[in-house]
Design a protein around this nucleic acid. Structure first.
Lengths: 227, 227, 227, 227
DNA sequence: AATGAATGAGCCTTCATTCAT
DNA sequence: CATGAATGAAGGCTCATTCAT
């Protein structure tokens, strides 16, 4: 009520500090969850285990997350952020040494696709999490709003591809098709690769992605027109 | 155990009979497991539930399967059998009203790919199992030999595609690449479809598969040569 | 399947024995529950505690009862059986040294009411259970059928009163009213007594019941008529 | 804590102010508890819930109440206050349009009994609390002094009945008996009604109370004498 | 071979309460 | 004074697995 000798700014500052602290702890718990997840897989991620890793009692976690599904959701969100950061970084790298001409558009497309692919290739646990996103999240933990937001972030990571496709002369409808197909293909290849089943075919994941991109190049309207 | 006054031959005959009986019961239990699985999904497949369906007690199952993972493995094998049966059936259907010419080879390729895809599209539970094969199976349930055998059956289901590709003029190496790519693509599309995330892109699974096959047609060596 | 050297009768005998054994264990668990209940009250009756008393693991209880509420229900049913046994016994005691005349009918009424009252006065834990019956049982544990059955057993315990009232000339409607009023009064007195609040009034429970019966005597149609 | 340069009088004045403040806050918390209790029942009254309603954190409550049981006790006291207010109000309503004569005394008795009954009939949550008072309150929350005080308030609510009975010619001893019996009867009827078990008898609570009052009328000394 | 009892570990969650800040 | 983090105990329940019979 009373605020003797503490001005509004100080109070706000304290709130901010506390908020930051809480965020840090949330983050700490999330890290614990991630480490359990990495070490033992998703089904081992129990509240008890997370708490143990984080140095807490099981009950303490509930100060930060309403339930288990919310933790999963947060894990997922964080993963998608990293994906986006990675993709953006790749895009920026290209822009820096860009030259002109439509050939560059395809290069951007390539790099964007590759970045998406490589992120999951090099971070297999995020792939697992991604699969979980696509399958297991219970309604409680994944409200429609949450769901939309996560979907949106996933699409964000594919935005560069869309833009590149657009510049390359694909129509709106074609873009949707190609982007979806690219996504599906990457997912398929990643799954094959991640589970080691790809050995069964004697091919490498990188090869397959390259193959797909090469064939995609054959379908580029602008290039085709130029012919 | 004891073998009072029974000669070796008789004993062997009895063993055989008993073996047959045991196999039949194993099969019976597997059927029960499958039905639970199909009806309620993989996480509902508990020992108790399987046993109940099979008309047994939970404990009884352990006379036939060492543990739960072994059942999962067997479930998987059975699923792959059904996949192969479905694909073979599709192939046979084509052969019956076959006409001559290389256009028919592509038709066979198409039908083979579609059969593979449709099996999992229409039997989502088997898709779940398939993902489980690729991910969750504990070593206990999946010995190396088992693994190879399951892999082999999976490849069997893609054999018709390989043959068709061969007839269409693809080289050995190209065949491997294309088959792997097809497989990856189908898997990706199925995953997208199964989890409903495909809606996010405004495309249908069938559309995507058709799109892929259409593009594949453009790469057929024989057809290209004919031009 | 096969039943070598064991005739049907033997099999049945074994089933019966097993059934008896299971019943005995159910009963054992119920006793454990009762003892916990008596010692610490209803809210201390947890599955873990019951199990501990019974010498079991918590999970083991679920072989005999589907859930906690079912245990409560069984406890209750058993309590009502004892109530009925007690009331019947009191009734029989009267019949033995019965003399004729309507005065005897009132005696029966008195004894019936008293038996009901005394059972709960002398078995306060059954009273607690009874209150629980009337209040707390969750739907799961108390299906409508269960509920009806328990209600029926409760009414059974009041049947002697109804019959006596009938013999004493009360009409059907009057009987219903009086029986309900008697029941309510007994319940109220028992509650007051059980919780010790009755001291607040400087009266004893026995006194109050006597008072009620005395006043009831003044309303007896046959006696009134005789006047 | 510290009292730098402040004389005793000033300190006392401040203490008083603080005491008043603390009382107000206690009251505020109690109101919150009451509202939770009325809305969701006793078992929903958790420290967290109370705190939330009061705009506090759970921990803050402990500045005003030693523990949960103490809150229950206070809740009870407040409930009894409302009961008394209701009964007094009913009494006052009669006094206003009073006429003379002994018939009015019985009317007052009737109204007093009815008010008591109706309060709990129409406020079932308070009935729950009442039962809790009579049963569940742990020693911690209910010191002897507390207990006496609550008892006293309960008796207060029956004072009008006692006075009316006295005016109607009942002796001291008879009054005690009748008041206790009335209380017991009301409690029994309320319990039956509240739990819905009354349906089992095909009677209504109001009917039963009326029945009891009618019979009580037959025992009124003054009226009997007049006859 | 099959039962059914039993275990023991595990699950998520809730709660009153304490305490440093 | 009030917060919010944290505890620790408890709650009901499920499940794969084992084992005597």
């Amino acid at each position: 009520m009373y605020n003797f000798g503490m001005n509004q700014a100080a109070a706000t500052a304290r709130d901010l500090r506390q908020q930051a602290l809480a965020d840090a702890k949330r983050s700490h718990i999330l890290n614990a969850a991630t480490s359990v997840f990495i070490e033992f897989g998703l089904e081992a991620v129990s509240m008890r285990e997370i708490a143990k890793r984080a140095g807490y009692t099981a009950g303490a976690i509930y100060s930060y997350f309403a339930n288990k599904e919310e933790i999963y959701g947060a894990l997922l969100a964080e993963s998608l952020e990293r994906l986006n950061a990675f993709v953006s970084e790749a895009e920026r790298a290209i822009s820096l040494n860009e030259d002109t001409g439509s050939s560059n558009d395809f290069l951007v497309l390539q790099k964007s696709v590759l970045a998406f692919y490589q992120f999951y290739r090099d971070n297999p646990r995020d792939l697992d999490l991604g699969f979980y996103l696509f399958q297991g999240l219970k309604p409680r933990g994944l409200t429609n709003e949450w769901d939309s937001q996560l979907n949106a972030r996933l699409r964000d990571a594919m935005r560069p591809q869309e833009i590149a496709l657009s510049k390359l002369g694909f129509s709106k409808n074609e873009i949707d098709t190609e982007v979806t197909a690219i996504f599906a293909h990457i997912v398929g290849v990643l799954l094959l690769n991640h589970t080691g089943r790809i050995r069964m075919f004697g091919k490498s994941a990188d090869e397959l992605i390259k193959h797909y991109l090469d064939n995609l190049a054959l379908r580029i309207p602008k290039m085709t027109k130029q012919k």
